[in-house]
Design a protein around this nucleic acid. Structure first.
Lengths: 336, 336
DNA sequence: TTGTAAGCGTTATCAC
DNA sequence: GTGATAACGCTTACAA
């Protein structure tokens, strides 16, 4: 019953050729039609499937690329997964996914594991680019493309969104709709996205001529809904904003819940703007105005950069920028 | 500049021991403290990382398990990912994710690829268990746990939800709330979930004493929001249901949009019930009553079964059932 | 306990 | 074009 798994030797023997010829035939390297046919037939007959470990041990490539993201449950990352998968599949690569929970050690270990050669390359989204990250990336075991802020003079490919400019634009939009007490519901202190959103928020206030009030800034413990709700509640205990800019859509959804809980009407009493333009924006009540940071495009670009680099290892590293875009819905519309 | 990647030979040479001793020391097999120390130090010094391909070629295990799901963008599957990852990590396995797009060929190719030994085992969610699936599963290259309906006399581990019973329960709940023209907004014809939901729906009608009306049944083209909206619109052109049972939460969200578009109030005019109890249920307006099919528990169980089987290959295959549970929210509440 | 050496299943490099 | 054969980097009998 326990059939031994057929190897290329089995096939070669059956086809009455050397393993070398069998390998060539199976890999589409020129052989006599007769040999080709016999090998292919033999392979079919025994149900031969090449062993991935052996193949990549010898050929020094796995045909896999990895994508490490902070949180599979955040739709912005599943959007990225879909974009990457599309590019990868089209160019003959398989995709391996990691959800890191934004855990620094987990991220570092994934980068370090490139040396183990599970995958041939990696696309990384990290929320905190520490010095450790930089040094690990500097001598990573395989090409890495970072989606996020440019890593200090590390020579990896990078695709950047511009959440700073996006946040500023959101603030100006809110101001143009008459809002003056504009709060920032930010992500966890110490994360890169939170830092740039904060800068953008301040830029926006400045250019809109609104005075900064630190009582209107609150950091959530995580980029997810429940921490968003809690942070919004904290904010509401000490301030009466007429608008809340949220660092991402999930936080915004949490904020909507908190506002509803406090009996405040959106957008009448308080306007809300999220960031990412996930599909969730169309589900909320009311639908969520947001800043689209180009997740799909960033991911597609990152995948293309990675594949390209895998195919041309010498290419100089590049940095690509993707522009933000305001998407107006009901939580802060044309009229509100 | 181009440092050659250190191998175990490098380490052994540096530590002045044989590669065998180096291997043993690095794998925690008993050695003299002196040897151990020298090897570890040498490994650290050159930054040695074992090559995964070589290791698994030799040891016949990769330390990876795979999870193949129809659609990463559906929160019910990301919930599963999180559960599986938790179990996997705790027991020292890495997780490799596949989003198949519910494509049969893609699924089959993933099962077939088990023979390549990229992973040591697989958890599979498929929407259509064809004869091909059965035969591929029958002689898969590695243990597989299926989350879904029991596969006909294939001896793989299986974890089943019970959407049939869940659907019936939903119908009875709707009837108990006074609804009589209860529609079924089902998933694509030919999928297993659609088949069992349909059966459950009919069970429910029967046990609630409601006459079946096929005009109230409509199939969506996919288990996602937009097809859900379209199917609901088709339904509304020819019937006036006072309740809609949807085959999953995403379809229900689409249905809510269609109902809103038709000027119908939920739950006053039409009650809505989804299935899966994803976090989306709390975001919709109004919040969505749903059937919880135990995604997290099913996934956790599947992961445990797989890991257990990987560690004890002889164990008899098992089938585990997870019960459904009605979760009442506003779209068909206690009062509506 | 340690070293020697034989593989694991492939692909790549040679002569032929 | 084909067939021996030497790697690829590692683990594991088996001997010492």
């Amino acid at each position: 019953m326990a059939e031994p798994v057929p190897t290329i030797t089995t096939v070669a023997r059956l086809a009455n050729v050397s393993v070398a010829s069998a390998s060539r035939a199976l890999n589409g390297i020129k052989t006599t039609p007769a040999v080709f046919e016999r090998v292919v037939e033999a392979a079919e007959r025994v149900g031969y499937v090449p062993n991935a470990s052996a193949r990549s041990l010898r050929s020094r490539r796995t045909g896999h690329i990895g994508f490490a993201m902070p949180d599979v449950a955040n739709p912005v990352y599943t959007t990225m997964v879909e974009s990457i998968q599309e590019v990868a599949r089209a160019r003959g690569w398989r995709l391996m996914l990691h959800s890191t929970g934004a855990d620094i050690d987990e991220e570092l270990s994934i980068v370090r594991d490139l040396k183990r050669r599970f995958v041939d390359g990696l696309i990384l989204v990290s929320l905190r680019m520490t010095a450790h990250h930089a040094s690990e990336l500097e001598n990573a075991g395989a090409p890495v493309v970072v989606i996020g802020p440019a890593t200090n003079r590390t020579h990896v490919d990078t695709v950047r969104g511009n959440s700073r400019r996006g946040a500023a634009e959101a603030v100006r939009h809110l101001r143009a709709r008459g809002r003056t007490r504009i709060a920032l519901l930010n992500g966890p202190r110490g994360t890169l996205p939170a830092a740039s959103r904060r800068l953008g928020y301040l830029d926006g206030l400045r250019s809109a001529g609104v005075r900064r009030d630190d009582l209107l800034i609150e950091d959530a413990d995580d980029f997810t809904m429940e921490p968003g709700r809690q942070a919004a509640e904290r904010l509401l205990t000490r301030a009466r904003p007429d608008a809340v800019l949220c660092a991402n859509d999930l936080l915004a959804i949490g904020a909507l819940a908190a506002l509803r809980g406090a009996g405040l009407a959106v957008p009448e009493d308080v306007a809300v703007v999220g960031m990412d333009n996930t599909y969730l924006c169309e589900l909320t009540a009311p639908p969520l105005t947001t800043i689209d940071l180009g997740a799909a495009e960033r991911a597609r670009t990152a995948a293309e950069l990675l594949v390209e680099r895998l195919e041309h290892p010498e290419r100089e590293p590049r940095t690509v920028d993707v522009a933000p875009r305001l998407v107006i819905r009901a939580t802060c519309g044309a009229s509100a």
